[in-house]
Design a protein around this nucleic acid. Structure first.
Lengths: 113, 113
DNA sequence: CGTGTAAGGAATTCTGACACG
DNA sequence: CGTGTAAGGAATTCTGACACG
């Protein structure tokens, strides 16, 4: 059994528990940059009650990818578009899986279709 | 290939990146308790340059175990003793593995011995 | 557009101590 | 022994703005 939905997971990688200072150390980015990428909707940290940002390890990986792209001259807007496309991909993939599940439920299991 | 040495690992579980406030939320313990268990040498957070404590997910799991034992009336000193024994176990286990490795290197691979 | 920085304030964390039991 | 708490200070983080390009 695989637990691989690219959504919520009890896993450590996706838990938002890391403060911005640590993210700065781990990514090498400045806090200014990290906050700016949030402003441009490229990362989505959670917030503590007091308002401090909390990131996950996934966020950190994501930030490093973003930083690389920006170094390559890609603009935040374009990166955002790429992300949207990936999300659509994910949805299609999930939709297909569910559909296949439905079919299996009604017509029984068939290997490879 | 398994990367399972109970020591340092590039894994997320063992990275010390979580501040005490988050640990409090995740474990349900008070900061007082968390710091006290450190004083009793049951957990070993790292420190930022400024001196703030940084915990790993492993630490959090460990803290929950500790909390359970204390609820059961086990004293911190006893818990510490248990931990020492476990560590000895680990060392023995590693020593054996290395020894086996040595033997294989010299006398070739034999299944099951 | 992406990033640095100084500014002022608020949230978070730290230590050592007193208290209770 | 294990934990709560008030105290004072230090480290961390936040936002909005000005600057450069």
């Amino acid at each position: 059994m695989k637990t691989k939905d690219p959504a919520k997971d009890t896993s450590y990688k996706s838990k938002k528990v890391i403060s911005i200072g640590i993210v700065r150390e781990l990514t090498g980015l400045s806090e200014r940059q990290i906050r700016y990428y949030e402003e441009r909707k490229l990362v989505f940290p959670e917030r503590s009650k007091g308002g401090t940002r909390k990131y996950s390890f996934d966020d950190i990986e994501s930030l490093m990818d973003i930083a690389n792209k920006i170094e390559d001259g890609v603009q935040t807007y374009e990166i955002r578009q790429e992300m949207k496309k990936e999300k659509q991909q994910d949805y299609r993939s999930i939709r297909n899986k569910m559909l296949r599940g439905q079919l299996n439920a009604r017509f029984g299991v068939q290997k490879g279709i």
